[in-house]
C-alpha cells in the first residue's frame, strides 16, 4: 500500500528515473527529485499557476498532478524551452518587454503562453488575457506580460501571411 516505485518520467526529452510513492506530485518530482527548480511553488493548491508545465501539449498545474499520472507523458518545463542557450521567441519577448520583474511567476506564465501559442498561433488580446488569467503575478500588473505574448503572436500572424 502506497509503496515506493521507480517512475520513468520524460522531461524535456530526457528520461529521469525517480523513486517515489504515489502521493508525490509532479511538482515535487521536478523540484525535489529531478532538481529542475525552474518550475516554482507559489501555493501548492492550484491557485497561482507558478507551477505550470506542459504535459502532452497541455499547460497543467504540476502541484495538482500526481507524478505517477505523468508517467508516459511528454513533460516540458521552463528549462526545456531554450535551445542551445538561445531563448525561445516567447522568452525573448518576456525579457525585452520588461514582462519579468521578480521573475518568480515568469516560468509559469511562459509555459502557459507557450502552450497557447502552440495551439493558437495568433490569439487576440482577449484570448491571451483569458488564457493567462490562471497565472498570478504580483509585480507587473500583467500589462507587459500580455504585451510580450501579443508581440510574439502578432509576429507569427505576420509570418503566416
Amino acid at each position: 500500500m502506497g509503496k515506493k516505485t521507480v517512475l520513468e518520467l520524460m522531461i524535456n526529452g530526457d528520461t529521469f528515473e525517480i523513486a517515489c510513492a504515489p502521493n508525490m506530485t509532479l511538482l515535487e518530482a521536478l523540484r525535489d527529485k529531478a532538481l529542475l527548480t525552474g518550475t516554482k511553488r507559489g501555493c501548492d493548491t492550484g491557485g497561482c499557476g507558478a507551477c505550470t508545465v506542459i504535459m502532452d501539449g497541455e499547460a497543467v498545474l504540476a502541484c495538482l498532478t500526481l507524478a505517477v499520472e505523468a508517467e508516459g507523458c511528454d513533460i516540458r518545463t521552463i528549462e526545456g524551452l531554450a535551445l542551445d542557450g538561445k531563448l525561445s521567441p516567447l522568452q525573448e519577448a518576456f525579457v525585452e518587454h520588461g514582462a519579468i520583474q521578480c521573475g518568480f511567476c515568469s516560468p509559469g506564465f511562459i509555459m502557459s503562453a507557450t502552450a497557447l501559442l502552440a495551439e493558437v498561433p495568433s490569439p487576440g488580446r482577449e484570448e491571451i488575457r483569458r488564457h493567462l488569467a490562471g497565472n498570478l503575478c504580483r509585480c507587473t500588473g500583467y500589462v507587459k506580460i500580455i504585451g510580450a505574448v501579443e508581440s510574439v503572436a502578432v509576429k507569427d500572424r505576420g509570418g503566416e501571411k
Binding site: 492550484g46 505550470t52 499547460a59 498532478t65 502557459s112 488569467a133 490562471g134 497565472n135
Partner: peptide
C-alpha cells in the same frame, strides 16, 4: 470554471 489551467485538467 477556475482558469484555463483548471479547464485543461
Amino acid at each position: 470554471v477556475g482558469s484555463y489551467r483548471h479547464q485543461a485538467m
